[in-house]
Design a protein around this nucleic acid. Structure first.
Length: 581
RNA sequence: GGCCCCUUAGCUCAACUGGAUAGAGCAGCUGACUUCUAAUCAGCAGGUUGAGGGUUCGAGUCCUUCAGGGGUCGCCA
């Protein structure tokens, strides 16, 4: 139930009736007519821009349209007051029974209140994390993991059929580097002194893998040339790393539906097929690229390569799919992978990348556009850097020095719930400060705590009510006489609740899960505010001694807030707190 | 140099994809604790939305020029 779209229907109906009466010209497009919460609550409960949007095509003055519309809408039983304001806004004040209905809808709907069918069950593929299988996940991956996962949940909530997918980059040269590094640890496990030259991974996390390799093959690979062991160690090492990564993701509560191997694209004709598909569209040619403008690399030499004419689909320059030695570039299997996604029948694709892949966006979109004839949209969300702080001091991570902060470090210190919530309190394309001390602080400064506290507070109120002999289970609350909820302070909370279904759709349409986090923070604020009004005006307290009926109505409102917080946290992948300690 | 992202209160950030007087938190100031947990609440103060131009009934939001910050730029992935 979305009260805003319900009232919007009433507005459209009124406009249509006005056309029938000749008060508005025929043939108007109503799609830009919006019903929104006004920025200032003093203006009313809802506002519509109908008159202003239609003024120009109708060749009428906005206020004239608004006046007629106001009269019509005022006849609707759901509308208490309709008044024209400003340049032609129409402000509506709604009957209290509507807000009471929102509370009931929240209680009846439970976790599903606000769930939408907007997505029309369309198949959408969300690809995220996709970190190289060369080591444990670090903080940067954590943000992508949390963002992608929350986005997937959000899309599910608004009615898409979502697949969560991880692309394993196990086909390129970095896997050879991994294999050589594991081999060194293997020799070390056999008691040899080893050094880690440049171009190998010196991280401690491979010690165990080296030992495990020793367990498996014994002395078989000692003093053997690379061609004897490389293939096998590659496989062994990537499997071990993926196991590590899956465990990392699990500690954060992220579970993928599918892991897709880059390697599976090689030697199976799939890359060739994808490139052939582009070739059939006349988008593949042999050519020489211009050097990058302005800055010419010193070792630049013109080379003939196989190129993809990505400029035909919005890119700035054409992109190589083959290196000058004839081997595939990284881009080629990626084209094949996205071709496969299109082939699997997804209606929409979303890739979540780190900000360092920004330069990759246009060519990937070009490829998908070409391969799907523009039918499958690809949205690429870039997650910006996470800056870490401890005791107010920034600390840097350096992969080379092996001092990088892992996902596990973060989760172990602050827990998965805090990690997830904090990572979602910023837009994905804005940098994020993550302060280990602040995120654990129990104060209003810390949004995680503030929202959790609101939920816990409701749980506490219900516990108190029950110990005072007032039944407050969900079934009882849903059946309560909500007409007792008529105080402005209570209506204000219900009004916020009414925004939830609408907000969810906006967040889903824009692929912006952070909006959920911000909304929960605001909703929590409403709850805390109402709670404290009870200190000054005891008639606003949730528990009214000796009056079970009134108490149940008021607790129903509080419970509805908890239900929405719980549903919202569910989308973010955070467990609501029952009590704070 | 090309391309992408960012620039909003002293600080950290919102602003419902073009709506009304740009909102929160922190820091600062004022007030409220034998409470349905004050781990919170109420209030005050704080702004030329980086700068200029444009589009229109209306711009933080769209277009354009410029400045500053970050990322990225064939044979790495």
């Amino acid at each position: 139930m979305n009260l805003f779209s319900e009232i919007r229907v009433a507005v459209i109906d009124a406009l249509t009736a006005m056309q029938a009466e000749g008060k508005l010209p025929e043939g108007l497009d109503f799609k830009n007519v919006a019903v929104e919460p006004p920025r200032d609550a003093l203006h009313g409960d809802m506002a519509t821009n109908a008159a202003m949007v239609l003024a120009k095509p109708a060749k009428m003055k906005p206020r004239d349209i608004a006046e007629v519309l106001a009269v019509r809408l005022a006849e609707d039983a759901r509308v208490d007051v309709a008044e024209v304001a400003g340049p032609g806004f129409l402000n509506l004040r709604l009957a209290p029974v509507l807000w009471q209905g929102v509370v009931k809808a929240a209680l009846d709907g439970g976790q599903d209140f606000g769930r939408s069918t907007m997505g029309g069950n369309k198949k959408v593929n969300v690809e995220y994390v996709s970190a190289n299988p060369t080591g444990p996940l670090h903080v940067g991956h954590t943000r992508g993991a949390v963002f992608g996962d929350a986005l997937a949940s959000l899309l599910d909530f608004v009615g898409f059929d979502v697949t969560r997918e991880y692309y394993i980059n196990d086909g390129g040269g970095q896997v050879d580097v991994l294999a050589r590094s594991v081999y060194l640890r293997y020799l070390e496990a056999h008691g040899q002194e080893v050094a880690f030259p440049d171009g190998t991974y010196p991280g401690d996390y491979l010690i165990e893998t080296g030992k495990a390799l020793k367990e498996k093959v014994g002395t078989a690979y000692i003093d053997q040339p690379e061609d004897v062991w490389l293939q096998d160690v590659r496989l062994f090492a990537t499997d071990a790393m993926m196991e590590l990564i899956r465990a990392d993701l699990k500690s954060l509560g992220v579970v993928m539906d599918k892991f897709y191997s880059e390697k599976s694209l090689y030697g199976t004709g799939r890359i060739e097929a994808a490139i052939a598909e582009l070739d059939a569209k006349g988008l593949i040619y042999e050519g020489v690229l211009e050097p990058p403008k302005g800055k010419k690399p010193e070792d630049w030499e013109p080379r003939e390569q196989t190129l993809f004419k990505s400029t035909e689909h919005g890119d700035d320059v054409d992109r190589p799919v083959k290196k000058s030695d004839g081997a595939w570039t990284y881009f080629a299997p990626d084209i094949a992978y996205h071709y496969d996604k299109v082939d699997r029948g997804f209606d929409m694709l979303i890739d979540v990348f780190g900000a360092d892949h920004g330069g990759y966006v246009k060519r990937m979109k070009a490829a998908v556009s070409a391969l799907s004839d523009g039918k499958v949209p690809l949205d690429i969300k870039l997650t910006q850097l996470v800056k870490l702080f401890k005791n107010g001091e920034p600390f840097k991570m350096s992969k080379r020095a092996g001092t990088f902060v892992t996902l596990r470090d973060v989760v172990d210190q602050v827990g998965p719930d805090v990690t997830r919530f904090v990572m979602l309190t910023r837009k994905n394309d804005a940098p994020l400060d993550f302060d280990f001390d602040k995120v654990l602080e129990q104060s209003k400064d810390n949004p995680v705590f503030y929202v959790q506290y609101a939920h816990a507070r409701v749980c506490s109120v219900i516990r108190n009510a029950e110990s005072a002999g007032i039944t407050a289970d969900d079934a009882t609350l849903a059946a309560a006489d909500l007409s007792k909820l008529d105080h402005a302070a209570e209506i204000a909370v219900a009004r916020k609740l009414a925004e939830w279904p609408r907000l969810v759709e906006i967040a889903g349409r824009t692929n912006e899960p952070h909006r959920i986090a911000f909304f929960l923070y605001e909703l929590a604020g409403e709850l805390h505010a109402l709670y404290y009004k009870g200190n000054e005006d005891t008639s606003l307290r949730f528990v009214q001694e000796g009056d079970a009926d009134t108490s149940q109505a008021k607790i129903a409102l509080a419970r509805a807030v908890a239900v929405v917080i719980s549903a919202g946290l569910g989308i973010l992948g955070v467990t609501p707190a029952q009590e704070m300690r």
